[in-house]
Design a protein around this nucleic acid. Structure first.
Length: 411
DNA sequence: CTTCCACGGGAACACTGGGGTG
DNA sequence: CACCCCAGTGTTCCCGTGGAAG
């Protein structure tokens, strides 16, 4: 950055003269739902085929939708849902589509509560017994003749006790006099059903729709489609879109990722005052996205997890880390900054969580006579992680801390 | 075959933030 | 108001278990 000698005068003119390469940047955001979904007509048709019976006054089968992230599950489901409601209105058949994202609403109570609130029933955030909320919802729903489609996005995120609600919901039809319910579960966890109560599994999975990942060609089509709306004419170098598509195809064909990449590439080009978006910008964007992701995740970690991560960071300089060593360092650091020390049991859980988030890599290794441990390695850039960790004021005192070698197992 | 260490499942508990009731 | 009920969450405690070095 320059020193504080910038001239204020003219600064805005300067900024405004930057070529605005975007026509409409929001088109590239993940919140934007396009009207046209390339390469998904099979899935749209499949879902519509199931739901059409609602318009004939029958209860549609429950549906389970599988597919990795960014394969268009949510977009398709919402789209078909809207279309169903619209058509229902046209024909005078009351269809209600309720969309719930279980990543936010992730407990039975909250799920039932938000369903009830959808029918304008007042339910407190907490406090009631669950069955009371359940019957509140049931009564509200049953007050009229209608068909309700409940879409549960990311059902797998419903925590362990979640299958209790699912079980109730799949059986709710026998309790209802006038209304009918059918469920649409959306998940990106292919093994989700293995975990489920068999009764729920068979009922929820009456119909299954698979969303395969996009290949590079399909991603290119999608990007092309959006780029037309997002950028001004002739701004993109020809290789940009294929490159974005190729990168994203490597990451399990995630369309969201591809769009992000394209948008960030554009933003980088814009900031570099380039008249065109070049291949190099895409490469920069790829790195930036990865780093941003890590920084964001690490920053929002709870203190204890940060501490555990920090001990891994400090240890990773001398090769592989085992839980035992990491735990010792962790303990010392807790004492230094006066934070309560968690049990080893808990710490292994925290490590597993970090593993899940892709910050660490932990694999169980058996060292024969010397027992069994998890071998930990960092899977993120060390230095930026360190930096982010020390941004937390509670960890600040540890900046000088060096793990003492007395913790080595063999004396 | 033994031995050793941490893994990881499950139960139990403490605590939080809310409600209803007398 | 005091008191008990409830769901949810984070934690500790207890314990059976894996598996290769010795």
């Amino acid at each position: 950055m320059e020193k504080g000698t910038i001239t204020i005068r003219g600064i805005f003119e300067d900024m405004l003269t930057i070529l605005n390469i975007f026509e409409n940047r929001d088109v590239l955001r993940s919140t934007y739902t396009p009207d046209y979904l390339p390469h998904r007509s099979d899935q749209v048709r499949a879902l519509a085929t199931v739901l059409v019976s609602a318009l004939r006054g029958e209860t549609p089968s429950n549906v389970l939708i599988y597919g990795k992230t960014g394969t268009g599950k949510t977009a398709v489901a919402k789209h078909v849902g809207q279309e169903l409601e619209r058509t229902g209105e046209l024909y005078g058949i009351p269809c209600v589509v309720i969309y719930i994202n279980c990543e936010v609403v992730d407990t039975q109570y909250r799920l039932l509560a938000s369903l009830a609130r959808h029918f304008d029933r007042e339910v407190p955030m907490t406090g009631w017994p669950t069955d009371q909320v359940y019957s509140e919802f049931k009564n509200a729903l049953d007050s009229d003749k209608r068909i309700a489609i409940i879409m549960l996005d990311e059902v797998d995120k419903l925590t362990d006790k979640g299958d209790g609600v699912l079980y109730n919901l799949t059986r709710i039809n026998s309790d209802l006099k006038k209304a009918k319910v059918s469920l649409i579960g959306i998940t990106n966890d292919l093994k989700f059903t293995e975990f489920l109560d068999p009764r729920v599994r068979s009922s929820l999975g009456e119909e299954e729709i698979i969303f395969p990942p996009y290949d590079a060609n399909q991603l290119r089509d999608i990007l092309q489609e959006r780029a037309k709306m997002a950028f001004k004419q002739g701004i993109l170098e020809e290789t940009v879109i294929p490159l974005c598509a190729a990168y994203a195809a490597q990451e399990h064909g995630d369309a969201r990722r591809a769009l992000d990449l394209l948008r960030v590439s554009g933003e980088i080009a814009e900031r570099a005052k380039s008249a065109k978006v070049l291949e190099a910008h895409v490469k920069q964007a790829q790195e930036k996205i990865e780093i941003d992701r890590v920084v964001e995740v690490v920053k929002t970690l709870p203190t204890q997890s940060k501490l555990v991560l920090l001990s891994a960071v400090l240890l990773c300089y001398d090769g592989n880390i085992t839980t035992g060593e990491a735990y010792n360092i962790y303990k010392q650091m807790c004492r230094i900054i006066g934070i309560e020390v968690l049990t080893q049991r808990r710490v292994t859980d925290l490590i597993s969580e970090l593993d899940m988030m892709g910050i660490l890599n932990a694999t169980v290794v058996s060292k024969g006579r010397y027992g069994r441990t998890k071998e930990i390695s960092l899977s993120v850039p060390i230095d930026s992680t360190r930096k982010v960790l020390f941004e937390d004021y509670r960890l600040k005192p540890l900046e000088e801390y060096r793990p003492s070698s007395q913790t080595k197992l063999y004396a």
